[in-house]
Amino acid sequence: MEMKPEELDVLISQLTASEHLYGHIRVVDPVHKRVVYQNTGHGLEPVSDLRACFELFDKKTACRNCISMRAYHENESFIKVETSPDRVHMVTAIPVEIAGRKVVVEFFKDVTNSMIMDDASFNQGVEMKRLLDQANLAAVTDELTRVYNKRYILEKLPADLTLALAEQQPFGLIVADIDHFKSVNDTYGHLAGDQILREFAAVLKDTCLDQADWTARFGGEEFVVCLPGKDRDTVLAVAERMRARIEEQVFHYDGQAITLTSSFGVYALAPGDVIDYETLLKRADQHLYQSKRTGRNRVTG
């Protein structure tokens, strides 16, 4: 939905008219995880303090399975159920373009009483919240490797990068790829290839430094490792440890011992550097392909 600037007031009045159906309405910038407008007693009004969108759910970090980022990227409307410590919300996210800037309108309906009855049903309520949290995690988890998926990259990377830029912290990204993976599939079969992908992902994840770091499968045999707060030397060292561990490891499938190598592209930001997440991914990926062009089984950064 594309709008002219003067149509914003019309949009706001239309949304405000829907308040009897929704407990909360707001307009967010999902890339930077900021609330732009939210409804008050006088309708939707600009938010001056640019609060983080996930604060509504009493969270300190961005939501896993952020449907507003999905709506933003896919230009479609989405619905999900989100939980806070004591409430359950049904959230509808609708992408809108205003003056060339894409934002997302979020509608919230409190469905706590519909899903968690009363104190007598506390255990059922806790179980419901656990199941909802599991469902949201499953939506951003790669089924084969059990690390995060591409959707998580597109949702989490912008949030982590924005925070690093705001706090002037270093930031590192690694893109990793298994060398000659097609030959592995052709020689040993696709089931062997699947097993190698699982073990490869586990090596990347286990080599990370702390809980702030995360690993995701970008697609095929290509993976992304995000290291917030890590400087260039640290990120290069982590990538080199990953490369060495893959080269040393013997992968086993159906009685067969399989060895392989991998290539890595690294891009790191120093404090004060400014870049958007798409450019960051592109530059790390360019370094990966430089590793492949110059012989594979190496780290370029």
Rank of each mutant, 00 (worst) to 15 (best):
K205P: 07
L161H: 05
S114D: 14
T187G: 08
L165Y: 07
T207L: 12
D186F: 12
A201N: 02
F171Y: 01
L157P: 12
K182T: 13
A192H: 11
N136V: 06
D186W: 10
L137A: 11
D119Q: 12
A139V: 00
S114A: 11
T162C: 14
V126P: 00
D179A: 13
L209Y: 08
H190C: 11
I196W: 13
D186H: 12
E167Y: 02
N113P: 09
S114P: 06
K182M: 06
I174W: 03
A202Q: 09
N136Y: 01
A166Y: 04
H190E: 10
L154C: 07
E155N: 11
A159Q: 12
L144V: 02
Q195G: 04
N123K: 13
F200Y: 15
N123E: 14
Q134N: 04
Q195N: 14
D179W: 08
G125H: 03
G193Y: 10
D160R: 11
I174G: 05
Q134M: 08
K205Q: 11
T187H: 15
I153V: 15
D177L: 14
A202K: 03
A138E: 11
V203F: 06
F181K: 05
P158M: 05
I153M: 12
V126L: 03
D119I: 04
L154W: 08
L209Q: 14
R146V: 00
R130Y: 10
M115D: 01
D119R: 09
L157H: 09
Q168E: 12
I178M: 08
L131T: 00
Q195K: 11
L161F: 11
D142P: 10
A138L: 07
L204P: 01
F171D: 00
T112F: 14
T145V: 12
A176W: 14
D133R: 02
D206V: 00
A176V: 07
I178P: 10
D179C: 10
L197T: 04
M117P: 00
F181S: 10
T141R: 05
I174Q: 05
P158F: 07
S121D: 07
I116V: 15
L209A: 07
S121W: 12
N113F: 15
N149L: 08
Q134H: 02
Q134R: 06
I174N: 01
D119H: 09
P170F: 02
F200C: 02
K150T: 09
E143L: 09
D206Y: 00
T162R: 11
D186K: 06
R198E: 03
K150F: 08
I178L: 15
K205E: 15
T207F: 04
F171V: 01
T207C: 13
A164W: 07
M115G: 08
L191Q: 10
L197K: 04
D133S: 02
A135P: 02
L144P: 09
T207M: 05
L204N: 00
L137S: 09
T145L: 04
H190K: 05
L157N: 08
V111A: 12
E127C: 07
K182A: 14
R198I: 02
V126R: 09
R198A: 09
T141Y: 05
L144W: 03
L197F: 06
D206G: 01
A202D: 05
S183I: 05
A164Y: 10
A135V: 04
A201R: 01
K129A: 06
T207S: 14
L197Y: 06
D186C: 13
F122D: 06
L131K: 01
T112E: 12
I196G: 04
